[in-house]
Design a protein around this nucleic acid. Structure first.
Length: 728
RNA sequence: GGUCAGUUAGCUCAUUUGGUAGAGCUUUCGCUUGACGUGCGAAGGGUGACAGGUUCGAGUCCUGUACUGACCACCA
């Protein structure tokens, strides 16, 4: 064996062999139960980040575990065209090449888009491969490929014919950066300090942060109960910029306590004003220029006419686009919408019909969104993406429309019959609204079935200090860099070890180093014991052998349980703990005097199987190259507990032996240690006596517990007397 | 404003039906121990945020407070 594990060549060799053998390729096999995970398709915009790596690692662990358990597994990979995000990047790229997007026809632009798709799809594929993900590449899907497009068009037709899709003039969020309408889900809020202008409209003064919209004002509203303005309602004032006459109206929406208590109504450029305008039959007036320049001009005009009463600072929230962070411009325009009220109902009911969301706390988030859902604006003013399938329409569909169909648009014909509904969807909790909810109602509406049984929501990867990884902070870790330096096993183990699903995991290179050390430990233990033959003969083995077999049995049971519950972080820690402490520090050390290849080999083999889903490469390499098995570990059945490997007596005996050794080791300051031990024993005896002399405890506590306490007390007393009596 | 989490050793986190608080890292000390210094051995370190309550017994259940974080809504 080489001095160190050569992960680079092992990874390449093993992954290629598995591809050649078709080990990741799923078959429709009626004799086996299917287990299918459709991978969340990454955007074809950039490199994979640590979040992707975590997400795909979790999925691959599940799939490898299920594969070993005998399921017919399908992990289906893909990529998303991410309309807006990609188009913005392409335009930037063209600009760098000196090409102005506006000089291109739609067809010419789409040629560049196609080239982009091709290039980045290939990059994404190779990156996912580097992670060691055992997905079925023969079924790779792209949201813009023909089968996805077909599903999009059929779904659109279905919903349109059902009257659920409509076109209408509505107040929508327009992002000036993306130059398109966006949905409510795509809005974020940002707290900023701005100037707020108090503007006189004659008999009434109004506060506004957007003076450039004053030309669009059609009324001034006050609260019906506001005594200050009661007399003015029904009267008229004049627009300080256009001079137009406008009424003073009363509407309960107005907050008397805020600002001057009077609100200017601009129905064309504010969602709330739009609704008030509708209530009072006010025609919207559109303002053509809402730029910064327009704002300056408006302020100047107000100053000159003396209408500007005061300028103050105001800290509040503004809505921004979740992609480009530019402030949203609410505008009335013709857009396509999907009616949500009827579609939401089955998605709400899904929680009572078998859909499991993990961690459970996200059920509330899921329900809250569905219970407050608004119609979904599905049209986008972009060049790339799925064209709305209506003659003459140039708008395209929101990229989440095709994503919502993903669990079934990727599965067709026999695959659909066999693998759908899928078992588990693994994704980050940040896209519950964008994606998870939409997949549920679309799946239910179009296929009549929920698209998956489980939704597994993992946390967002943060840096060592708990901050989000971001470009501006420069604290991001590129998973491919970690793989280059330490290997895919190390990346996978370090991402998952010690994490829990309901917490955001923290990641740092330090964690990778620790996982690297673990790999090294495994490698060296194997190097120490060379050969391994035969099964153990449980009754004949030594005390240490029986001890490790018993420990292993407990481990197997625990790992199966943890894997079934998707509790991989704790499972990883337990595996490491067992191998390092129990197996290396005690079993191997103890066996140095008399090596027992039977038991060593057995334990190692079971351990490799348990670890394989998390660290597929080093385990597979040891299995096939060092141990020489012809059939890969990937196809081995997952271990079960073995009743004949339980030796409670031997385990206890060896545990005591360990204690003795430990005492011998720190024999140096011996007296002090002995004193300490006596002290803690006395404390423990006092505790036990106190407990047992408590009638309430003896009467009310479970009987076996009382018995246990009695035994413990007797044992402690015996140890104490041995220590104090025999220790002279 | 609403909702939901979290608060355990210097750091990162575990402790599932309530029954003597556990790992790893860090720190200190000692090791050419028949694979591993990416290693071995040992030690130090916690009134489990705070205050009440239920219980024979609470880190674990209930109530309240404080702080941190996330999400939702959003008022000019």
């Amino acid at each position: 064996m080489e001095k160190n594990f050569d992960f680079k060549s092992a990874e390449a060799t093993i992954y290629k062999r598995h591809l050649d053998e078709g080990a990741f390729t799923a078959k429709v096999d009626k004799n086996k139960k299917p287990y299918c995970i459709v991978m969340p398709p990454p955007n074809v915009t950039s490199r994979l980040h640590a979040g992707h790596a975590l997400c795909y690692t979790i999925q691959d662990i599940i799939i490898r575990f299920k594969r070993m358990q005998g399921f017919e597994t399908l992990l289906l990979p893909g990529a998303d065209h991410a309309a807006i995000a990609t188009e913005v990047k392409i335009i930037e790229e063209l600009k760098k090449q000196g090409i102005d997007k506006n000089t291109l026809t739609r067809e010419q632009f789409l040629v560049h888009v196609e080239a982009w798709y091709k290039k980045y799809t290939a990059e994404i594929k190779s990156q996912i491969m580097r992670l060691g993900v055992s997905c079925d590449w023969s079924r790779f899907a792209f949201t813009m490929d023909p089968q996805s497009t077909k599903a999009v068009n059929e779904t659109f037709d279905h919903l349109y014919n059902k009257g659920l899709i409509y076109k209408g003039k509505r107040m929508v969020n327009v992002c000036p950066g993306c130059k398109s309408a966006i949905s409510d889900a795509e809005i974020e809020y940002k707290t900023v300090s701005r100037d707020i202008y108090h503007v006189s409209y004659g008999s009434i003064t109004v506060a506004t942060v957007r003076p450039e919209t004053i030309p669009g004002d059609v009324a001034i509203a006050v609260h019906p109960k506001d005594k200050r303005y009661a007399k003015l309602v029904g009267q008229f004032v004049f627009n300080p910029i256009t001079g137009a006459q406008m009424p003073i109206i009363a509407d309960e929406y107005v907050d008397m306590k805020f600002g001057t208590g009077a609100l200017k109504i601009t129905p064309a450029h504010d969602p709330a004003d739009f609704e008030i305008g509708q209530r009072h039959n006010l025609e919207p007036i559109f303002v053509s220029d809402l730029s910064d320049t327009a704002r300056k001009t408006a302020i100047e005009k107000l100053e000159q006419s003396g209408a500007l009463v005061a300028t103050k600072k105001y800290t509040g929230n503004i809505s921004v686009c979740y992609r480009c962070r530019k402030p949203i411009e609410p505008t009335i325009s013709d857009q396509w919408f999907l009616k949500m009220t009827d579609l939401a109902k089955p998605a709400i009911a899904a929680l009572n019909n078998g859909l499991v969301i993990l961690p459970k706390k996200f059920e509330k988030t899921y329900l809250h969104w569905l219970n407050n859902i608004k119609d979904w604006c599905i049209s986008r003013q972009l060049l790339s993406g799925h064209r709305i399938p209506i003659k003459g329409e140039t708008d395209v569909l929101d990229t989440w429309f095709s994503a919502a169909l993903w669990p079934f648009s990727t599965l067709n014909g026999k695959d659909r019959d066999y693998f759908y509904p899928t078992q588990t969807m693994v994704t980050g909790y940040d896209i519950i609204f964008f994606w998870v909810i939409r997949m549920v109602f679309m799946g239910k509406e179009i296929t009549g079935k929920l698209p998956f049984q489980n939704v597994l929501l993992h946390g967002l990867v943060r840096d060592a200090q708990g901050r989000k990884m971001s470009k501006s902070l420069g604290n991001g870790i590129d998973p491919i860099d970690i793989i280059d330096e330490f290997g895919a096993d190390v990346l996978r183990f370090s991402l998952i070890a010690g994490t829990k699903l309901d917490r955001d995991p923290r990641y740092s290179v330090e964690k990778a180093t620790l996982a690297r050390n673990f790999c090294n430990k495994i490698w060296n233990a194997v190097k120490f014991f060379k050969l391994i033959e035969n099964e153990p003969q449980p009754e004949k083995e030594s005390l240490a052998d029986k001890w490790i077999l018993t420990k292993l049995n407990t481990l197997v049971k625990s790992i199966i349980k943890k894997y079934e519950k998707f509790d991989f972080g704790v499972a990883a820690n337990e595996l490491q703990q067992f191998f390092w402490s129990d197996f290396c520090d005690w079993y191997i050390e103890e066996s140095k005097s008399c090596k027992n290849p039977r038991v060593f080999g057995y334990v190692l083999k079971v351990f490799l199987k348990l670890l394989n889903p998390i660290m597929p490469f080093i385990t597979e390499h040891i299995w096939t190259v060092v141990l020489g098995y012809k059939i890969g570990l990937i196809n081995e059945p997952f271990p079960c507990t073995d009743k004949t490997h339980n030796f409670p007596k031997a385990k206890k005996e060896f545990d005591l032996y360990i204690e003795e050794i430990k005492q011998q080791r720190n024999a140096k300051d011996e007296l002090e240690n002995r004193a300490k031990q006596i002290e803690s024993l006395k404390k423990e005896i006092a505790r036990g006596e106190n407990m047992l002399s408590n009638k309430n405890f003896v009467d009310r506590a479970p009987k076996d517990l009382v018995k246990k306490e009695q035994e413990k007390l007797a044992e402690n007393k015996a140890t104490l007397s041995a220590l104090t009596g025999g220790g002279k």
